[in-house]
Amino acid sequence: MRIEVHLFGKLKELFPKVKSGGSLQLIIKIKNQNTIQDIVEKIGISPKEIRHAFLNYQYSSLDRKVKDGDRLALFGRDMALIYRQYFPKIKD
């Protein structure tokens, strides 16, 4: 499976050479069924550092399963800025 991951804000500093106002795009290849949390851990980020995750532009809970071709966007503590009431958090 191929997952397109976009990191925003200070999460990008895991890869210090890259600098831009947008996201840092990573392509993650995995074999088995995985959740967003598994992907986060695979990149080397502690799940508790994630404040907002969007799977295919949907505000998602970290236990949501990903599938081939999905797009995942991750925002860390430094970018925590939406009221909890804005979106329903989609779970599996």
């Binding site: 996201s23 969007f54 532009y57 925002f75 970018m79 925590a80 800025l81 804005y86």
Partner: peptide, 23 residues
């Protein structure tokens, strides 16, 4: 959100551009 070095202080309210765009 509101602490020194938090979202508003670091990026301003425009921190929302990427987040709301992603949504």
């Amino acid at each position: 959100v509101t602490k020194k070095g938090g979202a508003l202080n670091t990026y301003g309210t425009a921190v929302l551009v990427n987040i709301i765009n992603e949504a």
